[in-house]
């Protein structure tokens, strides 16, 4: 379980504007580093403005764009910054409908925002013409949104492994890796799955072999990637990824955070699977092959016989 936002406030501001050729621009503070929030912003804004994400241009991570943004950490890219951009887009939708309604003298209730423009009970005003009308009338077709990161919700992850351990050598094989996540109503399933798979892979490295070692003089002795192995293609099993079917009352359009938390259940699931296979409880990470070998040997030595597996 993880709270969807860190405590003591996390702020985001966003601005959504209509551009000259009928596209939209969203300004956000969050940086893009593979977390996928850029796509999420485009999708949330597109949904609020009844268009597709390809019509939304995202500008980001520049202190000149907006007043403030706490930043992309604590799993906040979607649930805090996304909420700000969604609010801005919803406000801009109101402004566009209001402008169209005013020009056509059709009540706003009978106006409908579409991907091309506003349909005012049969009279159609394209986004391009609305942009020109905005300029003519000196109306800023731009809206701002913000979110202060409270109240917060909770997201959940569960991981399961089936592993095989060679009692003679300590070799570990992952036979099955399954992960379930409760990320609310998912904005982009492909991308969210990628976040989860990446979290599992990084956590497998930490669970099984990654170790920054310090020598007796206090210096880091694992100084290059050849001494500090991170998971390669060959090291990572294909995980089954499942999503709980929920929709969050607090997140943007039902979504919750899902960037840090897939990491967390991996190591204990692995340790518990190894215990189930061998009867030996390993209490120190990483669970490298030599650690498993020595642990099994020590257990066998104390008990005088190889333990029976607890489950086959």
């Amino acid at each position: 379980m993880i709270d969807t936002v860190p405590p003591r406030r996390h702020h985001a501001h966003a601005r959504v504007s209509l551009l000259e050729y009928g596209r939209f621009q969203v300004d956000v503070g969050t940086a893009e580093f593979g977390n996928g929030t850029t796509t999420v912003h485009a999708q949330l804004v597109a949904t609020a403005l009844h268009t597709t994400a390809s019509q939304v241009v995202v500008r980001q991570a520049d202190t000149d764009l907006l007043d403030h943004d706490t930043g992309a950490f604590g799993s906040t890219g979607t649930v805090v910054a996304g909420k700000a951009s969604l609010e801005a887009a919803q406000e801009l939708a109101h402004i566009l409908m209001g402008l169209a309604a005013g020009i056509t003298q059709v009540p706003t209730m009978r106006c409908r925002l579409t991907a091309e423009g506003v349909d005012c009970d049969g009279t159609f005003l394209s986004l391009t013409s609305l942009f020109s009308l905005g300029v003519e009338r000196d109306i800023r077709l731009s809206a701002e949104g913000s979110w202060g990161g409270t109240p917060r919700s909770v997201a959940f992850n569960v991981h399961g492994f089936r592993v095989a351990v060679n009692l003679g050598t300590g070799e570990l094989r992952i036979l099955q890796s399954a992960h379930a996540a409760d990320a609310g109503l998912i904005v982009n399933p492909m991308q969210c799955r990628g976040q989860i798979e990446g979290g599992i892979a990084q956590a497998l490295g930490a669970a099984l072999y990654e170790d920054v070692r310090i020598d007796d003089d206090g210096a880091v002795s694992t100084r290059i990637l050849r001494q500090y192995h991170i998971p390669t293609f060959a090291d990572v099993p294909r995980s089954e990824v499942y999503f709980a079917s929920t929709s969050d009352d607090l997140g943007p359009l039902g979504a919750k955070s899902m960037s840090e938390s897939p990491f967390n259940p991996v190591a204990p699931a692995m340790a518990n699977a190894i215990k189930a296979a061998t009867g030996v409880r390993f209490t120190s990470l990483p669970l490298a092959r030599d650690t498993i070998y020595l642990g099994l040997k020590a257990a066998a030595d104390t008990e005088g016989a190889t333990r029976k597996p607890t489950r086959l």
Partner: peptide, 17 residues
């Protein structure tokens, strides 16, 4: 300010099992 905006832990456990 931490609320159950939604809850899916029970589902997650079943999905993995």
């Amino acid at each position: 300010d931490v609320l159950y905006g939604s809850y899916g832990l029970d589902q997650c456990i079943s999905l993995v099992q």
